[in-house]
Design a protein around this nucleic acid. Structure first.
Lengths: 256, 256
DNA sequence: GCGGCTCAAACGTGATCACAAAATACGGCG
DNA sequence: CGCCGTATTTTGTGATCACGTTTGAGCCGC
């Protein structure tokens, strides 16, 4: 475990949760700075906060503030504001009626919506990746090897109960595949969905443990990719999503 | 026509377009301020800019700047920055390599993606609206009447060649239906897609005229809603999207 | 007349300040 | 012992400033 026990049930208010010091870890985050240009400060803040949300480091309802976030990252208020606003636009953060900002809450309805939307988009996006790589069996094999590599590390982290590593590798697995589709519009939509499911993940893993996440469909995904079988690939992604979202639903209902 | 001739072909650079004074009209925009709380300045700026983009007032490639937008709306730089950043997060605006911001460009690939994504989400969202209203035939009838009313005004504006009114009413028609679904996640995704197609619309109407937009599927949509026929509703929405996106594609290819 | 260069204007970005509203902590009252 | 009203702190928000970079127009040389 890596959570350092910080997952222990906290008194959860209706909107804003406890007031812990916001400890955000970005060490294990995948590097995203690809441009030759040095990244702007607000971009790194955005990326770090984004990663913290997607990897489930911030539980739903966790209150954020411009100043505390700025202090956490050692920057001024401005970049923190911009990062918060961007993530709010993507649905990862919500505004309370008094304009305060918090990690989006989970509700059964939202869970259902997220699940449906993911099922509507991600299998199609995966199939698009296959199409993009269709002619090039070599590229397909290379991608498959990359995915397999990620999946092996992922399995290891599940066995070790390292939920932080799990969150990182699982998203890395999916987005490595999705990025191959070269479909920025789809990718943006899916990223938004992952940002909204991320905080739920934290709750699930905290309650159910990583053992519940063992039987994903990643092997089938790689197989279908190797075979160039779009139908099978879609099915595998679909099943993987169903599996994951069912786990979240289980973890959620366990809360009540 | 309402465009006051401002649609005349301008020298279109690779990224930033002409440097006209940014005339943004928000008079016809649907009012969105529902909360009892007085709206923050940055929210109204966001809404107005959002509306300008969705209704196609800003052609793709149009350069924006924080200062010019602030001047246009008579506010300071801060609210303009926040609005720009939110819309960039939703894919409506793009950053140039030198961090300058512009209305997103259109490409054939993007058009195809937007079309596919809309087809994947909007029929499902419409069906969800039907489900949400399923038990209440009275509510269905009320919504149908509302939609019919919008559609009538819409037809009128088509005949008058008022493309600004068309853009407003068309989005109003769809989102009135979609909002009935009470599905915020889906709605957010679809809004993002409309924000990305909006600027394309401007080009289309400018080239093809409103006559090309005449045969939409709105009547069929209302019929299906009245009948409570989900399958038919999905088909109608699907056909309407196909129709619209085909028009955009035509308008786009006419540009080359 | 035309291309390249220079320089002033405009821009993005981060920092800081002021103000009103909201949240939290606290102390007194029931 | 619990509740409520007050005072302090924190917060969102908008405005403004400074600095280094980019842009684009004008000018010079060819």
């Amino acid at each position: 475990m890596v959570w350092k026990g910080e997952i222990t049930r906290e008194k959860k208010g209706p909107v804003t949760a406890a007031k812990a010091p916001l400890r955000i870890v970005t060490s294990g985050a995948p590097k995203t700075d690809a441009g030759g240009r040095s990244a702007a400060v607000h971009e790194t803040v955005y990326e770090r906060l984004r990663w913290a949300i997607m990897s489930g480091q911030l539980e739903p309802g966790r209150a954020l503030s411009v100043r505390s976030l700025a202090a956490e990252f050692g920057v001024s208020a401005m970049p923190a504001r911009e990062a918060i606003r961007q993530l709010a636009a993507l649905g990862a953060l919500e505004f309370t009626p008094t304009r305060r900002v918090a990690v989006a809450q989970m509700t059964p309805e939202k869970l259902s919506e997220l699940s449906d939307a993911r099922l509507a988009l991600e299998p199609a996006l995966a199939a698009r990746a296959l199409t993009a790589l269709d002619g090039d069996a070599n590229a397909r094999e290379k991608l498959a090897a990359k995915l397999l590599d990620i999946d092996e590390t992922l399995d290891k982290s599940i066995k070790q109960g390292d939920s932080a590593a799990y969150a990182r590798l699982n998203s890395e697995f999916h987005f490595t595949l999705y990025e191959a589709a070269d479909a920025p519009v789809y990718l943006g939509l899916v990223e938004s969905l992952w940002l909204q499911t991320g905080p739920f993940m934290r709750v699930v893993i905290g309650r159910l443990g990583t053992a519940a996440l063992e039987d994903d469909q990643h092997k089938e995904v790689v197989e279908a990719l190797r075979a160039g079988d779009a139908k099978k690939l879609e099915t595998a992604i679909r099943d993987d999503i169903k599996q994951g979202m069912t786990n979240i639903a289980r973890g959620y209902s366990a809360e009540e």
